[in-house]
Amino acid sequence: MKYFHISHTDLDGYTCQLIAKEFFPHGTYINANYGLEVKLSLDYVANKIEELQGENILIIISDLNLNYDEAKWLDDKIKELSNTNNIKLQLLDHHISGQKCADEFEWYYLDISRSATKIVYDYFNTHYIFTEKTQKWLAPLVNAVNAVDIWLDNEIYNFEFGKVCMHMMKYCNEINQFLFADESRNFRHYLLKEASNYIPFENGHIRLDNDFHTIKKNYLKITNQDDTLDNLVATKLVNMLGEKKEYLTIHYGSHKGLLTYTLGSISIVANEFLKHNSDFDFFADISKRGVASFRAKGNLDVSKLASKLANGGGHKNAAGCKFEDFKETIYYDDVKNFFQKKLNLLG
């Protein structure tokens, strides 16, 4: 069976996918926030299914309420795609704003009394059944996420533990979710599974809060040697960027550069990458709002480049600018094409 799972970008959304991975570890997982990201994610899944023939396909959408136009488009699209594949579509959500869609479409399940995590857990436990070993660690984690997500502060321990988990998901942005979507998601799932080990202990939420920094470092280490979190992140990202550098390469005249999207705070990573990749002259990163940051190592004056591109400026080896005509996207190829065209216009 081919499995596709679109979920939200918060604790509830990521835990939904952690649950599903117990049965579909090799499925296609996508995380989206509301608005453009949801529509593009639906398009992506539809396009992937169009490439298939004669497959059994399960699509789960969790912790996201679609507006009516999105739901109608998806319903029509799935009916069309069902001509060549056996498709089951199931949306599992708890946001009251989805009531109109829930009334209209049979695949749209809505229950405002439970978190999406609890709904997804019950769905899979009904249709597939967890092993006793899995239930032992997963059920308590589900209860903690459920308590904080729908604010059951009377469940004191679950609620407090859930708060720490929510904090963990908010502050684990070391791996970029656009460039390294699967690795970023795996990082979050690792943190949640590690967190589940603390639930049985008295004051487990406090112990987890104390250990959060170390747990992150343990995942980010490439070797057994310890270092600061910033240095561990830089080393891991430089290795990951190195594996994708051909795909991320851009050109400005005779100069070779690396382009990233929404990486943010690039100083350490960019300088480390340039130090270990002598054939690259500059490093550029663009934010969702079109703000570009540049780093170089002396072979190219990026302050002049930023000025030519969008009236930006800065220093010879560190500069920035803002593209007013940049359009937010979830696709790196769109960003690369946009930026390379800008460079090509400079000659």
Rank of each mutant, 00 (worst) to 15 (best):
S97T: 15
I61A: 02
L42N: 02
N47A: 09
E324L: 13
Q135G: 12
W151N: 15
K77D: 01
A292G: 04
I199Q: 11
M168D: 08
L300M: 07
F180I: 09
H251P: 02
H167E: 13
L52R: 02
S254C: 08
K163F: 05
I60Y: 00
I286R: 00
N125W: 05
G313K: 01
N85D: 03
D230P: 12
D12P: 13
Y219T: 10
N186F: 05
E155A: 11
N86I: 07
N65T: 13
A292Y: 03
Y198R: 10
K2T: 00
S115E: 10
I6W: 01
I175Q: 02
D76G: 10
L58S: 04
S113G: 12
E324A: 14
L18R: 07
I175W: 01
L179I: 02
L258Q: 02
K88D: 11
P25Q: 04
E51W: 01
H167W: 14
Y261K: 08
K72E: 13
N65K: 14
L36M: 13
F178L: 14
I250S: 06
R295V: 06
T126E: 15
K275T: 12
F23D: 03
T249C: 11
D230G: 11
G54I: 01
N67W: 05
F159G: 07
L141P: 13
Y332V: 06
K256M: 14
G290V: 05
E155G: 03
K256G: 06
F180S: 13
D103M: 12
S278R: 07
R114Q: 08
I87S: 02
E55Q: 12
I268H: 14
L248W: 10
A147G: 13
N186G: 12
I19F: 06
G298S: 05
G290N: 07
A310Q: 00
A20N: 12
D281T: 04
P140C: 05
D149M: 04
G27W: 00
P25L: 01
N203Y: 13
Q90W: 01
P200W: 00
Y68N: 08
L300R: 00
H276Y: 13
K245R: 15
I222H: 06
K39F: 06
I119D: 01
L309F: 03
I61W: 00
G242W: 04
I215G: 14
N47I: 03
F159H: 15
K216W: 04
A181R: 14
E194R: 15
D76Q: 14
I222P: 05
F4N: 02
F323C: 11
E104R: 15
A20H: 09
M1S: 10
F338E: 00
D301L: 03
